[in-house]
Design a protein around this nucleic acid. Structure first.
Lengths: 219, 219
DNA sequence: TTGTCAATTGTCAGACGCTGACATTAGCCT
DNA sequence: AGGCTAATGTCAGCGTCTGACAATTGACAA
């Protein structure tokens, strides 16, 4: 009711800020440890101890050990989805998807950097790809995201996902391309974001030919 | 050295047979419990006890609790892959894949029935789809299988997966279709194998149109 | 048949992930 | 200042999974 509200209006109290700092510290420490010594060889006690909180507190911030590993992925996914929704309505589905990823890859820093260094996020991505337990969770999360994407595509085109299979099919194919691109990038030498961008664009451009029946005559 | 060898020549000794029976019993019991009371609400001790072995022995047969849940999936996958490899060389990639799945769905009993009743295997498939922890593993396993499929497609067409993206892309799309079909089947009412076959065939037939750019003009 | 060898299993202890219950601390608000 | 409530710590316990060691049992030859 006083002028204080004008000085610090939307933010929060000391309590909220403390919680945010604790959470952020847990993510940073966890990703440091995961990328440094591997996911499996890092215990929750280690993470908690490095931030000086109890193990129990860790589990009040993250439902399980996996969840903290995907904290920055959450940001990146939201960022991508927002980019998709912002695409002009006249774009064809595949063009909108293509534009959204390439755009999201480029501006990744904006969504992740405020939590941890973007470079750490990229390193963590590689850990996820190479850790079976995390890869499995990653694929499930991807499947859930694809469901949302399919719905958005259907909305754009004025279709119903439950009657028209095309939104889901296109999304599934698109998801496959992203997965392949990410895998190749993770296995390759060039760790830059641009390399990931190029690989993705390259594969998206080959989606049509991949379905053509006569591969051999083209060779 | 005696006539006994002619009576039971290739098989194995008492030891091997006993192991096979124990393993089989563990799978049957586990699937019964999983489908009956849910994966999460079934403990390894319960499974071991129902077969009258120690918990330690269970983990000597299966590396972890998840693995026993996928025992019949292993058979089914091998069955499908064999069907793919048996496809005539003149078939186009997508046609070969389509023929292999539909064929494998139909003759599922042959590969699974000898381990557990086919109906139990189908019920377990639904449990996998509806249990987050199992779904994640299922998707990872699927990704691994797709890698093998892509290699086989490349072999058929005389290509190299590391230079030509089409085998992987086609496989990824194909895998997406199977996943969507399985999901719809799991959510639907008709639990028959034929229903799964029909859904799969229907979606495979819409793969081309899903990539067409002008969805709206077709409506 | 019997004895030796090796494979299979059971038992035990313990690490690690995760959860409920309860006590304690610390920010918030009047 | 003092009460309220949210955040945290502590503790006990379940379930998954593993290493080590001892006991059992099938295989094979003397």
């Amino acid at each position: 009711m006083t002028a204080d509200e004008a000085v610090a209006p939307p933010p929060t109290g000391l309590r909220e800020r403390k919680k945010q700092r604790t959470r952020s510290a847990l993510v940073r420490s966890a990703l440091d440890l995961f990328t440094g010594q591997g996911y499996d060889h890092t215990t929750v006690d280690e993470i908690a101890e490095s931030v000086d909180v109890s193990q129990r507190t860790f589990f009040r911030y993250f439902a399980n050990k996996e969840q903290v590993a995907f904290a920055t992925q959450d940001s990146a996914e939201s960022h991508f989805f927002a980019a998709l929704c912002a695409r002009p309505a006249h774009e064809a589905p595949l063009a909108a998807l293509r534009g959204a990823v390439l755009d999201a890859w480029s501006t990744m820093g904006d969504s992740v950097e405020q939590l941890v260094p973007a470079e750490l996020h990229m390193r963590m991505y590689r850990v996820i790809e190479s850790t079976p337990a995390l890869l499995a969770v990653h694929l499930r999360r991807t499947a859930e995201l694809e469901e949302r994407i399919a719905s958005e595509i259907a909305r754009r085109e004025g279709l119903d996902v439950s009657v028209d299979p095309r939104p889901r099919l296109l999304t599934a194919m698109f998801g496959g391309v992203i997965q392949i691109a990410g895998k190749l990038w993770g296995a390759g030498d060039d760790e830059s974001t641009d390399a990931l961008r190029d690989i993705t664009a390259f594969h998206l451009d080959h989606v049509g030919p991949a379905l053509a029946e006569n591969w051999r005559t083209e060779q």
